[in-house]
Amino acid sequence: MKARELMRRDLTSVEPDTPVSEVIYLMEQAGLSAIPVLDDEGVLVGVISERDIIRAALPGYLEMLHSASFLPNLNQLSKRLKEMAPEPVSKYMNPDVIFVHPDDEDLQIADTLIRNELKQLPVVDDQGHLVGVIRRIDLLYRLS
């Protein structure tokens, strides 16, 4: 099965200058854990995930400790999120996006998802335009 048959044809996305507050709002409204970032031409230039935002909002040493259990409460996280709210998403997105093409095969897609521990993969055409997204659950559902 090819990516074009597996993908969700949902182009929900943001632009590099979209404020972080709008990204969080969109994630909540649309029920998404990661959102592609597109430039003016519709070309994929990054992905912003819940994980990227949390990582940016937490103090750096927590990442080294791989734990948030040292935090006394969430006040610091909340304060940092409020500071980040008006900032452009380009500052926090992952610009090194792993993606697949519409004619890529399911085996390659599964391998890419597993090897990179991704929840979803953008699908882009030859010009780099986003044409869909494949979530892990889409693959599991179609294979089961």
């Binding site: 044809r9 949902d10 182009l11 929900t12 709002y25 409204q29 044409v131």
Partner: peptide
């Protein structure tokens, strides 16, 4: 919309 094979590109609002 997605199930019927169309591509979706909506803006989400409250």
């Amino acid at each position: 919309v997605l199930k019927r094979g169309a591509t979706a590109n909506f803006v989400w609002i409250e």
